[in-house]
């Protein structure tokens, strides 16, 4: 949903970042307003996943230039947990298995951290169980997965459902979903996409990182961006994704040659 007067939730300007002194992001500019769904596409190694990790505050990445404003705060000054508490959510491409930590307890601690930030009361074990059982429906997840260790022994599809369940509990303002469609069969993809659609609304925004049109058949983006060499090379509407599906990325190299990377 595009509303030019909707408030800006996330504004990325000239973002450069590196890992082990190797530059990966080379001047990303992106503005996301409430209600919008953005898709970032691009070849492997174009910097898509790095962008999501930098936004979430992964310690392995160093921001070398640029700014990221989230509502009215400087996002880059915040610890990862503070970013999450104020409503930024990263759905992991590879959700991490944490042996020995119960999924239910993990979900409750995370939910309460977010609720505390919003000024809501913390939920006790019983109240949380009611909430989580209701939210399980969003991703049609078996309650048995609550009793297991976080993501341990989950299939690829179950892990991604667990990510969307976390999103449903944390009610983020900006959800970044990093290749949430990878490794999913068509049924799991439908369930996950339906979950994302249920959670998207006029006051929130979604940034989908994906390789494939098939996710965008199920979640219609308002904007599609093509990343290459660590920046956004071209932006357009949902038709840009369809064009990529037809033409592939061969045009990217010619375009990159015309637009050399700016050095900060």
């Amino acid at each position: 949903m595009i509303r030019p007067d909707a408030p800006i939730l996330l504004e990325i300007q000239g973002l450069h970042a590196s890992v082990d002194e190797q530059p990966i992001l080379n001047g990303v500019n992106l503005t996301i307003r409430a209600g919008e769904i953005h898709a970032v596409m691009g070849r492997n190694g174009s910097g898509k996943s790095t962008l999501s990790k930098v936004l979430a505050g992964h310690p392995a990445y160093t921001v070398t230039a640029g700014s990221v404003r989230y509502q009215d705060v400087n996002l880059l000054e915040l610890e990862p947990e503070q970013r999450a508490r104020i409503g930024l959510f990263l759905g992991f491409q590879y959700p991490v298995e944490i042996p020995g930590v119960s999924n239910l307890e993990f979900l409750r601690v995370a939910t309460n951290a977010r609720r505390q930030e919003r000024g809501d009361d913390e939920l006790d074990t019983f109240a949380f169980e009611d909430l989580v059982r209701e939210r399980l429906n969003v991703v049609q997840m078996d309650p048995a997965f609550l009793e297991r260790s976080v993501n341990q022994g989950f299939s690829g599809g179950e892990k991604k459902r667990n990510e969307i369940l976390q999103m449903a509990l944390l009610e983020p303002l900006v959800a970044i979903l990093d290749e949430t469609d990878s490794g999913l069969d068509i049924d799991a993809l439908r369930i996950v996409a339906s979950g994302v659609n249920q959670l998207a609304g006029p006051h929130t925004a979604t940034l989908l990182i994906t390789h494939y049109q098939r996710l965008l058949d199920l979640i219609t983006p308002d904007f599609v961006h093509v990343m290459a060499a660590g920046r956004i090379l071209r932006s357009g509407g949902k038709e840009l994704a369809l064009e990529l599906e037809r033409t592939g990325y061969d045009w990217v190299d010619a375009e990159l040659a015309r637009q050399p990377v700016e050095v900060p």
Partner: peptide, 26 residues
């Protein structure tokens, strides 16, 4: 494990509490 710590932090769990959770699980 740094990736486990980051995963917990990315869900709003403070670093110190995330460490304790991981130790407890261990």
């Amino acid at each position: 494990q740094q990736d486990e710590l980051f995963y917990l932090q990315s869900r709003g769990i403070a670093a110190a509490q995330a460490s304790r959770l991981l130790l407890r699980g261990f």
